[in-house]
Design a protein around this nucleic acid. Structure first.
Length: 215
DNA sequence: ACCCAGGGTCATA
DNA sequence: TATGACCATGGG
């Protein structure tokens, strides 16, 4: 089975996901940092706290007292670390001249700069590139590894960059909208794929995925 | 009470 | 370069 085939199966079964949830590029970037190893429902609470305080902007986030920022982020977990990361990101964002400047950079340059920010790793950077800047980037997450391992298409322990280039090579001819939907579909589907491998030989592997995905 | 979630950093070996 | 500890909330 090839990479576009899996996409077609997922898309036929679930339909478009309409990612990223939320409003505008900056909110996408904030969400990308806050959702690190965290359920999205908790992230929404934190973002709502920022909105209620009228502080969902890089200016407000860099200006507010650290302790208060951390309180707003509390429901998303890791709130001390995330307050630090979000502040580091917003400082960088303002230094770089904001969205209008950043959007002029090439994808490799922009990616490298994102990765230089403390708290922005490869997956968060790629979330931002794809969902805030609309770049043709494939996001690798734990669900991606799990699903494609179950399908027997990857080993699962490949490097992030190795997987990314493999996926992007398999999607050379598709539009950015497919990248957008593909990752969203993977996350959606991944939530009901079992985690433990040996016990799932019959329930989560090929057969069930194929049956489930083909409707 | 336990396990996990749309990761990343830092300290060790 | 490769593991492991750590961060912390809310839902199942």
């Amino acid at each position: 089975m090839r990479i576009p085939t899996v996409y077609n199966m997922l898309y036929r079964h679930y339909g478009p996901r309409g990612w990223w949830p939320g409003d505008g590029p900056f909110e996408v970037m904030v969400g990308a940092v806050l959702t690190q190893n965290t359920a999205w429902t908790n992230v929404e609470r934190a973002i709502n706290n920022l909105k209620d305080a009228d502080s969902l902007s890089p200016e407000a986030i860099t200006a507010v007292h650290f302790k208060r920022l951390a309180r707003w982020l509390q429901p998303s977990g890791y709130f001390n670390i995330k307050a630090k990361r979000l502040r580091a990101f917003c400082n960088w964002y303002l230094e770089q001249g904001g969205f209008a400047r950043l959007r002029q950079l090439t994808t490799p340059v922009l990616r490298k700069r994102l990765l230089s920010v403390n708290g922005i790793g490869p997956e968060t950077a790629d979330d931002i590139l794809l969902y805030a800047f609309g770049r043709r980037v494939f996001v690798i997450d734990a669900y991606t590894r799990r699903i494609f391992q179950r399908l027997g298409l990857i080993a699962g322990d490949e490097s992030y960059e190795g997987l990314r280039s493999w996926f992007e090579a398999g999607l050379r001819r598709v539009d950015v909208q497919v990248f957008n939907e593909y990752h969203a579909l993977i996350v959606h589907h991944g939530k009901h794929v079992c985690r433990t491998r040996p016990a799932c030989e019959t329930c989560c592997l090929r057969r069930r995925c194929a049956r489930k995905l083909s409707g």
